[in-house]
């Protein structure tokens, strides 16, 4: 499979008071199209920081991060926005839907930024809502949705533009077990059907059950990077 993300000697430091705090040290990783991979580790181990740098929401202190051939450290604000707009999708722990817009409009927003014609937008939005099983909620407002439905809308919104890479930061943290499994199955399916690469940051056992590659972080270091056998997954 094609290599789409290369991380070489990545170190990330945050200024803290007068000194510096090192959140990520000497990370070397590579990701291929179609991966279903998670960063796991205790709180504070650097999962979110790593995900944000891959998502070009933050920049490396040292080292090189190439995402689809773009060096995150050297992108202008405009270029990184372009990269996110075209190729990256984000899901967060909180769904962050726009409260005044309907489910349909929330999903459509991502396409408005791409200046797509109305008919194409409509088709794409309805497809995305179908993936997450929410076509009947298109005209609902976020406040009328359950937590699981809210997160599914967030997935549809991130997926509607068919990004190459989805970055999901603790997507199940606010969901009960049933809803967690539901959205994980949805994402797994999208991963298989659309070949979208999924990168998770999580410390949720349920998520780990779906992952095919688990990268363990501790104090900003990669301590383990393991492929999961296929048969184990079918059990999960």
């Amino acid at each position: 499979m094609e290599s789409i993300i290369q991380i070489t000697n990545l170190t990330k430091q945050f200024p803290v008071g007068t000194g510096k705090f090192t959140a990520l040290r000497e990370i070397n990783l590579e990701f291929h199209r179609g991966e279903f991979t998670g960063f796991v580790g205790p709180s504070g181990s650097g999962k979110t920081t790593l995900l944000n740098i891959i998502g070009s929401l933050d920049t490396p202190t040292e080292g090189e991060v190439l995402v689809l051939g773009n060096s995150v450290a050297h992108l202008t604000h405009k270029q990184s926005a372009q990269l996110r707009n075209k190729h990256l999708g984000f899901i967060f722990q909180t769904y962050n839907l726009f409260p005044v817009y309907t489910v349909y409009e929330n999903v459509e927003f991502a396409l408005l930024l791409q200046h797509l014609p109305a008919a194409e937008r409509r088709k794409a939005v309805m497809d995305a809502l179908e993936w997450v099983g929410l076509t009947d909620k298109a005209q609902s407002k976020p406040a009328q949705l359950s937590g699981g439905e809210g997160q599914r809308v967030a997935i549809a919104r991130a997926m509607v533009k068919r990004p190459a890479i989805m970055l999901a930061d603790e997507p199940t943290a606010n969901l009960d077990s049933k809803n967690s499994h539901h959205i994980l199955q949805t994402m797994k399916q999208l991963n298989e059907e659309l070949e979208t690469t999924f990168l998770f940051a999580t410390h949720d056992e349920k998520v780990m059950g779906y992952l095919r590659r688990i990268i363990s972080l501790e104090d900003g270091r990669v301590v383990k990077d393991e492929e999961i056998m296929m048969d184990k997954i079918t059990e999960g």
Binding site: G55, L57, H77, K78, A81, Q82, L83, R84, N85, K86, L88, F90, F92, T94, N96, F98, F109, A110, L113, R157, A158
Partner: peptide
Amino acid sequence: YNEFGIRLAMGEEKGH
């Protein structure tokens, strides 16, 4: 702030 954050994440430029 939430809205702006998510819009940035979705690839909208700050200027936009």
